[in-house]
């Protein structure tokens, strides 16, 4: 059992506050992805869990044991580094077996465990090579194998696929997820690639400026973003926003249309909808098409509603010309509302 609990963890570098009061619980065997833009503190949080960085305050627990005062090797973790950190002066075999050697395991056990994980990662034929003789993808496999060989309770990964090309990344994504699920370890995976996050995660923690804004399943994060930041960060293209003014109880005026909305007592809200949740209809929001991009599977149209840009994804058979006026109806159950003051979602 390796449940991870992060309690009130904060970290500052001098005057700079890199993490503010992080609270997060990761279930045993869960695959948790930390997702956020560059500089939001993902690596810092991961390194605090690993013990490579000391938190300014707060506690880290793994498997019901407080571990933030322990050295990295006593935490039951293994890590895959962004630049792999595969030792250049050791063969692939010795790299994978490095941690086992440090634990002074007998030779035959090292050999057995190295060969097993090398098989899992499909690198049995590379065991005698040095890292200078490997491709980026192979080095990445060695780094994962080295972590798996430890049979850790928790495996930490900092953007392990970011140095690979797009095709290889997609391949490794699926493979990594399979291997980790099989090994039954709890995994924390840092990335700034939302496709990676959506496709791999059991749960995503969206981070922004040293805070965790939302921690939920991928579909929940996508459908029900808890804050405007999440809505505009997740999804490609992201959610559309339009200002809304009150028009009676539970009614809101959006771009000249009256829509059903929350019964909130606010001077204004933001109406939000995903581009694919708009359809052409008899009545709805009136938009002027600006840019039309046929993307094969569908048609991406960037239009203007009042002063705001607004993107919709339409069926690829639709014929739209720039300058044309579209009437777009939002799918009612997909409309979301955000409070402009707190930026939080309003139900």
């Amino acid at each position: 059992m390796a449940e991870i609990q992060i309690k009130n963890v904060a970290k500052s570098f001098g005057a700079y506050q890199a993490l503010n009061n992080i609270n997060l619980t990761i279930a045993d065997q869960e695959f948790m992805v930390l997702l956020g833009a560059s500089g939001c503190g993902k690596s810092t949080l991961l390194r605090i869990i690993a013990g490579l960085e000391t938190a300014t305050s707060g506690e880290v627990w793994i498997g019901g044991k407080r571990i933030d005062h322990l050295s990295p090797k006593d935490r039951g973790i293994a890590m895959v580094f962004q630049n792999y950190a595969v030792f250049p002066h050791l063969t692939v075999f010795e790299n994978i077996g490095f941690g086992l050697r440090m634990q002074k395991r007998p030779n035959d056990e090292v050999k057995r465990r190295v060969e097993r994980v090398a098989g899992l990662m499909h690198i049995e034929m590379l065991l005698k090579r040095y890292s200078g003789e490997l491709s980026g993808g192979q080095r990445q496999r060695v780094a994962v194998a080295r972590a798996l060989a430890m049979e850790p309770d928790v495996i930490l990964m900092d953007e392990p696929l970011s140095n690979l090309d797009a095709l290889l990344r997609m391949e490794m994504r699926a493979e990594l997820k399979g291997v980790l699920a099989e090994s039954k370890t709890t995994a924390i995976y840092v990335t700034h690639d939302q496709v990676e996050a959506m496709s791999m995660a059991d749960r995503i923690s969206v981070m922004h400026q040293g805070n965790i804004v939302q921690a939920a399943s991928p579909i929940e994060v996508y459908r029900n973003p808890s804050a405007r930041f999440v809505a505009s960060f997740i999804g490609n293209p992201p959610m559309n926003f339009l200002p809304a003014t009150p028009a009676g109880a539970g009614k809101w005026q959006v771009a000249g249309q009256t829509l059903d909305g929350p019964k909130a007592d606010k001077p204004g809200l933001h109406f939000a909808i995903r581009p694919e949740d708009m359809q052409q209809a008899e009545s709805g929001l009136v938009a002027t098409a600006k840019i039309v991009e046929p993307l094969g599977a569908h048609l991406l149209v960037t239009c203007q509603i009042d002063e705001a840009l607004f993107r919709v994804i339409l069926d690829s058979d639709t014929v739209v010309k720039p300058g044309q006026t579209l009437t777009l109806a939002p799918q009612a159950d997909r409309v979301r509302w955000f409070d402009p003051d707190t930026t939080l979602a309003v139900a």
Binding site: S71, P72, M79, M102, M150
Partner: peptide, 18 residues
């Protein structure tokens, strides 16, 4: 020598002497 190698060594249990 890149710092990352020492971090990896730390995580995988190498003492300072090792």
């Amino acid at each position: 020598i890149p710092k990352e190698y020492y971090e990896a060594a730390d995580v995988f249990g190498a003492s300072k002497w090792k």
